[in-house]
């Protein structure tokens, strides 16, 4: 009766792939205006902590917590973005990296609110909450041939899948809109863009905020997928990991970071059979990428070739 091929393990890995995909998209958005932000781990932690505190201490329902997490992260994005966007290039990268560490240290030391280094446990988990409320409504997952844990993992996966699809769809459409073209103009030449009448500061802050909001959203989902968070989850390792998604997959096309996040999250799991050596393989792969394809795995010419001639949106970027 039970659908045996539906393995919660595979769904679990797929769920983390999707969360990382959202993070990959979030770094792409800021990169689309030519800014390198390493603060995504910080925004992610803001989103995660906001929803964790609201749902565990103040009885907020989970969707409200997730929305609040994204909004607070976006507000933090505006607050950080306006002063720091006067910096460019490596200076911005360092400033945002510093921001991420500041946020983490605040979470470590603000014990009354965040529990300090011990973190926040027993955060409601999406799948378990959904199953509990459906059971109250008289629905049993067994009636559609699923075991409890299959249903939990499947619902988490589907929620994340829908969220990720929406995010990718939104930013894909954005790319060929007025805003997306303004982003591209700012990225290619900021002064020329300004001369052409584009409010560069506005668009840069907008992109930065969008990236922060998406990171916060991913962080909130992360909190409700693992049900436990601590400041140690949001160190600069996480920021670098997110950056690697973009570097590995390619930062010039939306699908680059998406693909990079998917591959680099799934890879350590696929390599479980060589347990002790899997991170060696991972490292070698990264080095090989830098040698043979420094622009990343996916770039606009490749997408155009794959998509035939119709890719007009990518075509304009080809000029870069």
């Amino acid at each position: 009766m039970a659908v045996d091929w539906l393995n919660p393990y595979h769904l679990q890995v797929a769920s983390f792939v999707l969360i990382n995909t959202l993070l990959g998209v979030s770094i792409y958005v800021t990169l689309a205006t030519g800014q390198l932000s390493l603060g995504n781990a910080g925004f992610m932690s803001i989103g995660a902590y906001t929803t964790a505190i609201l749902t565990t201490r103040h009885g907020f329902p989970m969707p409200a917590g997730i929305v609040a997490g994204s909004v607070v992260a976006a507000l933090a994005g505006i607050a950080v973005g306006i002063p720091s966007l006067r910096l460019t290039g490596v200076y911005l990268a360092i400033a945002t990296l510093g921001f991420g560490e500041v946020v983490r240290v605040v979470f470590v030391n603000w014990e009354s609110l965040t529990g300090g280094a011990v973190g926040i446990a027993a955060i409601p988990q999406m799948g378990r909450e959904l199953l509990a409320s459906l059971r109250d409504a008289g629905f049993a997952p067994e009636s559609i041939g699923l075991r409890g844990n299959q249903f939990i993992s499947l619902s988490v996966f589907l929620i994340l899948f829908a969220s990720t699809l929406c995010a990718i769809g939104f930013f894909f459409r954005l790319g060929s809109s007025r805003v997306g073209r303004a982003y591209a103009a700012v990225r290619m030449d900021e002064r020329a863009a300004e001369a052409a009448g584009i409010d560069t500061t506005y668009y840069k802050v907008l992109a930065f905020t969008q990236g922060a909001m998406l990171s916060g959203f991913a962080g909130a989902l992360f909190a409700h997928a693992t049900s436990y968070i601590s400041p140690a989850d949001f160190t600069y390792h996480r920021a670098v990991e997110i950056l690697v998604f973009a570097v590995f997959g390619g930062s010039e096309h939306l699908l680059g970071p998406v693909f990079g996040a998917m591959l680099l999250t799934a890879l350590p799991e696929l390599l479980r059979s060589v347990s002790d050596y899997r991170y060696i393989v991972y490292g070698i792969l990264l080095i090989a990428m830098m040698v043979f394809r420094p622009q990343g795995l996916i770039d606009p010419p490749l997408v155009n070739r794959l998509a035939g001639k119709k890719a007009a949106g990518g075509g304009s970027r080809d000029a870069a």
Binding site: Y9, V13, T226, R272
Partner: peptide, 22 residues
């Protein structure tokens, strides 16, 4: 059946799902 977690929660959770279900 020995699985690696690299000390990370996500990896530990994935490993646990593998052990429990696969």
């Amino acid at each position: 059946v020995i699985e690696d977690s690299s000390g990370k929660q996500e990896q530990a959770l994935a490993a646990a799902q593998k052990l429990i279900n696969s």
